[in-house]
Design a protein around this nucleic acid. Structure first.
Length: 299
DNA sequence: TCACGTCAAGCAGAT
DNA sequence: ATCTGCTTGACGTGA
């Protein structure tokens, strides 16, 4: 069990997800920005290591406009040394990495252009993880996409379009239940056909589910992760009190989190905390998980 | 230095 | 029709 948080560390002064407007694109601007982002990524990972946070989601903005036609620079080549170095750091310290392409990536879209762009963007994510030299346990998590009023057909379109992806993406792609369209069961159905893992999102599941105990779901989901995929990843968040359903808590709720750990029973998972205050909650989660025999930490 | 309109991209659901 | 939320507000112009 490792604990992590996504994209941003608010304690550190740097940001690893800086970008710029398309209109301000220039080679220099791009190089400066990527340079900043990679520096910051290294700082964040060092911070995380110091605090026993061994799981981290890298922002899709780490390489801005990576899949956009405007880009004429081979970032992979240009930053090869630093990418290798950061990758070594991750591997040497037994860290886990994920990425989460944003809402514009819709592999099952009815529009060809959208599917094409989505494939390009997924290829970028895979090639970034490749450039770090990470194995296939580093995952790219994606929602199934749109429903378009006909769920079965739309799920089939996802399955068919999956075939269009290059091998490097297929090996890293995992599907995540969302809060209104596709439940964990829908994801499990797709997983059966494609043999890709299901990443379970706890809060989305509370909002969008069929009746079934959480323990059953954990078991079914965990079975979709094979050895080469690493241990299952899970997105954890709790509902912000007195706020709209689905709103992520600003800070971790210790009781809720402890109950969650208990509900996993003997199953081991890497836990991504989707909580507003990021590393602050992660630090608290680490201290709550410390006595758990599954928890991995640096002495 | 600060306010605030806008930003590559999709979709669903609320208003 | 338009707005909001999504994993994360941040960029950048104009005053």
């Amino acid at each position: 069990m490792k604990i992590g948080y996504p994209c941003i560390n608010r304690t550190l002064p740097c940001r690893g997800n800086k970008t710029f407007r398309l209109a301000s694109y220039s080679k220099d601007r791009f190089i400066d920005t990527v340079s900043n982002n990679l520096d910051c990524l290294q700082q964040i990972l060092s911070f995380n290591l110091d605090h026993n946070i061994l799981f981290f989601r890298i922002s899709s903005d780490i390489i801005p406009f990576a899949s956009h036609p405007v880009l004429s620079i081979d970032w992979n080549l240009l930053f090869n040394d630093r990418l290798q170095e950061t990758g070594r750091f991750i591997k040497e310290n037994n860290m886990r990495i994920s990425m989460h392409p944003d809402q514009f990536i819709v592999l099952n879209s009815k529009r060809k252009e959208v599917v094409q762009r989505s494939i390009q963007e997924l290829m970028y994510h895979a090639s970034f993880l490749d450039s770090l030299g990470l194995d296939y346990s580093s995952k790219i998590q994606l929602h199934v996409g749109g429903v378009y009023g006909e769920k079965e057909k739309s799920m089939n379109r996802f399955v068919n379009n999956f075939d269009l992806l290059p091998r490097s993406v297929k090996k890293r792609l995992v599907i995540e239940n969302d809060d209104r369209s596709y439940t964990a069961y829908d994801c499990l159905k797709i997983s059966k056909q494609l043999h890709i893992p299901v990443l379970f999102d706890v809060l989305h599941h509370q909002i969008n589910k069929l009746d079934e105990s959480i323990e059953t779901i954990f078991r079914l989901v965990a079975e979709t992760w094979k050895n080469r995929d690493g241990i299952p990843m899970v997105d954890y968040s709790s509902q912000e009190q007195n706020e709209k359903t689905g709103k992520h808590a600003t800070h971790i709720n210790p009781n809720d989190f402890t109950n969650f750990l208990r509900s996993l029973n003997s199953i081991d998972m890497d836990i991504m905390l989707e909580i507003k205050d990021k590393e602050k909650s992660a630090l608290e989660a680490v201290s709550l998980a410390k006595n758990d025999s599954r928890f991995i930490h640096i002495s």
